[in-house]
Design a protein around this nucleic acid. Sequence first.
DNA 1: CTGAAAGCGCTTACAG
DNA 2: CTGAAAGCGCTTACAG
Lengths: 343, 343
Amino acid sequence: MKTPQKRTTIYDIAKKLNIAASSVSRALSNSSKVNPATKALILKTAAEMNYQQNVMASNLRKGSNRTIGVVVPRINQGYFSNIIAGMEDITYNKGYNLIICQSNELHAREVDCVNALINQHVNCIVISIAAEPGGHEHLQQVLDHRIRLIQFDRVVDELETFKVINDNERASSEAVSHLIQQGYQRIALLEGPQNLDIFRQRKEGYLSALRKHGLPILEELMCENAWTKELSAEATRKLLGMKNPPDAIFASTSDFSALGVLEVATQMGISVPEQLGICGYSNEPFTEITSPSITTIDQYSFSMGKTIGNLFFQEMEVADLHIEPKIMSIKPKLIVRKSTQRS
Amino acid sequence: MKTPQKRTTIYDIAKKLNIAASSVSRALSNSSKVNPATKALILKTAAEMNYQQNVMASNLRKGSNRTIGVVVPRINQGYFSNIIAGMEDITYNKGYNLIICQSNELHAREVDCVNALINQHVNCIVISIAAEPGGHEHLQQVLDHRIRLIQFDRVVDELETFKVINDNERASSEAVSHLIQQGYQRIALLEGPQNLDIFRQRKEGYLSALRKHGLPILEELMCENAWTKELSAEATRKLLGMKNPPDAIFASTSDFSALGVLEVATQMGISVPEQLGICGYSNEPFTEITSPSITTIDQYSFSMGKTIGNLFFQEMEVADLHIEPKIMSIKPKLIVRKSTQRS
DNA sequence: CTGAAAGCGCTTACAG
DNA sequence: CTGAAAGCGCTTACAG
């Protein structure tokens, strides 16, 4: 633990040039009130001395560190990594940094991450909450510490914050309507954890489409907590083993679930889409290359990331903390592929 | 741009309790030299006053900000997002933050990112360089500023830094040997940009396997710059249109390339693996579900991320800056699937 | 346009 | 165990 040699500071430059540190600071921060000649000299000397601003000191003094904290369940999931990539594209151009944390779907870890970010005095926290149920005092804390907050995708509805969400209900309703139009009559639903609003909304979309088309709502066709490939495969085995099995499955939780369905159907010799229609959610890259390719819903994740970034810079960065929070809803797009095209 | 209300500082707590700020600081930092009773009182009061340490001030004073900067070509690519997820797992437990930047494969942007991180006084920079050719003065700058540097995967070989790499040559050689053992005789190579060492090494592995098995090295079977799905598909069309086409293609650049090969072969009615063997690189999730499934090479990206994190904490965090850098090589694993199994 | 000074909020040697 | 003081490196009102 040693510091072999000090970094150059503005005082070193000031001393060398026999001027005040404040002038050096002004020259470096490109302030107008400084003689162009001295300014040039200062910049030249700074470069020669290999000067790099100490951002920690600058941040402390200015009370802002131009940093946005991001908390997601998992970084290495197509949807979230695309969101982050999109955000980075925006923040990079604004000279902001992104600090990334993953909750691993655990509430306690999410609380930890949020506290760490509050501690860092980030300018804004962008979060999509973990699946594990838990309170949201930690998010209230963010607001209490006067840090801006954007929730996206999986949001705590009752908390009044900026939100960037997908219209899950509408997208799901469209997907199920599409299945009905293709002639499917007994459509099963694979549900995600109902403590997350996104999964409740998707279920709602499923129900409303059935109602709209006058189809019965059958409890036995709705499977709880089928939100991994494995759990979905298990649920599918049960569904397809019924006396009166479904003729379509809407894997509302993810494409991974849809893949589980497809694999089980293939194993059981059930032909897709003829005997069984399958629709997933998220438009993961692989849905295009399975056989048959899988119908799914694209959430525009990369551009959603950009939307989040732009929202911060355009509406929040310099605005009053107490402005009415904005809610932006992005309409996902149904991508029809072979797994649901009977006609 | 307003600060509605000040945050609680240690001075606020000190004033309230009529003690010195230094005692508050000591109590909060869990120092031993403080009366347990006062300490308890301080902690209680701090909690009541909603105190959060100002990390900017602490960092400035301590001269370290417990942050690691990461620069990768793209965040939203399975390989890199896994590396980051693995690193985060380690840094989270150590209370370090991760700042993430993406170069988008552009050299100038990479230089920008690195400079921003130097400015932030991060403790360490972890980088995998962009494909676009360019110098490496920016990496030398990192060292000049006494910031620790770890290169991974795509490294600048001549720069003496810590490195975490895959043994690309050996893995490629094994893959090609496997093809030869399966009876393939005319094995084509899809190459990546040769300014990146990883692609040179993979080519070297291909060549050495051919030599070892006494097979001729044929220029017409080696395709430069076939490192996206589209470029690979194009190269494949050329290869398969030859009078004497290859009977196997090693897509050394990525599984996306291998997918391009598979799609073209399928379109042309060429059966895989019977008429054409295909091997990819990286073990992207989709390789398991194509038909046929694709033989590929797993790089253990998540655990590689952990290795990078551990390397920093175990060898670099508190060590002298001028210790001999360590180079860790991880042996990737050949995953044999249907696309290469003729027997 | 320039300088002297205060202060951002913390930590830590120093003295007691 | 506790307090007073200095200082991390910068920025910015204030005075000239």
